[in-house]
Design a protein around this nucleic acid. Structure first.
Lengths: 190, 190
DNA sequence: ACCGTAGGCCAACACGTGTTGACATACAAG
DNA sequence: CTTGTATGTCAACACGTGTTGGCCTACGGT
């Protein structure tokens, strides 16, 4: 049951090109403004190919935006440094991976996008909070606080591009947000 | 030069209805998905009236989304309470006024929307930071940090609706975010 | 009572969209 | 070589959009 499919199709390159182009356009313009025609043009194929391989625009979106945050295992970390490590990890994520910008744009645009973010949050962030924070039953709340700060920085810096947020240096962000995250994660309930 | 126009036109009610409907639809669906036809239907008039009174969809958007945060004067406040007061003020703003949800949705959607948020940030948030924070030349940076946390909470709670963020009580949010804002505003640069 | 004008509706245009099916081509198996 | 199938292109459809101009209606000043 390991590899049921062992048929490397000749069209795999095209499929991949479509996905790359889709991530690019979705990230740059959001779900509505990113058109299948523009994606197809960027992938240098015909729009109908997108339909053939992914069924519909929604299907393409679903295929393009499967996101793995790759959260580090907090077990091996200095408990007092976990805030800074997390912020640093998120910055890496946002700067190397346009999938996240795309996800955020689409999340504010469509219900399907919002639900997808809820899924990532539930499956990848809450479990981490559950491991780290003192009272596991508060994990969801604390994860939400962390999400609010991290997504907020991503929003102002990478989507809205408020000039002072863009101007911030990487280590400045870590220094400012690290303690915040640390507190949301481990401080006693106020 | 006080009141150059003293002609209460008969159509003022319609104009107002259009604006109300526009804010409603923009807030609920963002710029692209909110159609002039839907706005007109909600205002119980013909789509062409929107064009007559506001010229274009962009014009309607500009008219519908002039936002005044009504930031309190920090001079009369306990300097140690300013963080909590600001968070509380923002919560009021978000819950009573759908203009802000609208603004956030549109800001992530279109360049024009992002620029509008930049304008609000520059004209209403930075000046406040300049009044409060110790070194006025850092006001922009600190205002950006505040924006990241406040907009992030608004995003997760009112737009993405992450369940734990929605479940948070008003006083919980103030208790968690207040100190964060306070630190971003007045703590020495880390 | 008259009539100019503002307020409002209707039908249509031009355009861009997602989507579809018919047709061409290149590849691999017999 | 022939044939079947995967890969790709082309043109078109049906629909919804922002936008426009013509037309009707009803108010308000004279």
């Amino acid at each position: 049951m390991s590899d049921t499919e062992r048929a490397p199709r000749r069209s795999d390159a095209t499929r991949h090109a479509i996905l790359v182009a889709a991530r690019e356009r979705f990230a740059a313009e959001g779900y509505d403004r990113a058109t299948i025609r523009a994606i197809a043009k960027e992938a240098r194929i015909d729009p109908s190919m997108v339909m053939r391989y992914y069924g519909s625009k929604e299907g393409l979106y679903a295929a393009a935006l499967d996101v793995d945050l790759g959260m580090p295992d907090p077990a091996g970390l200095d408990p007092r440094e976990v805030g800074r490590v997390l912020v640093s990890h998120f910055l890496d994520l946002w700067e190397e991976n346009e999938v996240l910008s795309s996800l955020l744009r689409v999340g504010t645009t469509s219900q399907a996008g919002a639900e997808r973010i809820q899924g990532v949050f539930r499956d990848q962030l809450i479990p981490l909070a559950r491991q780290v924070c003192p009272e596991p039953e508060q994990a969801a709340t604390r994860a939400a606080l962390i999400a609010s700060q991290v997504l907020g920085m991503a929003l102002t810096r990478y989507v809205l591009r408020l000039p002072p947020a863009v101007a911030l240096g990487r280590e400045e962000i870590v220094a400012w947000l690290g303690p915040t995250i640390q507190r949301y994660l481990t401080a006693p309930r106020p």
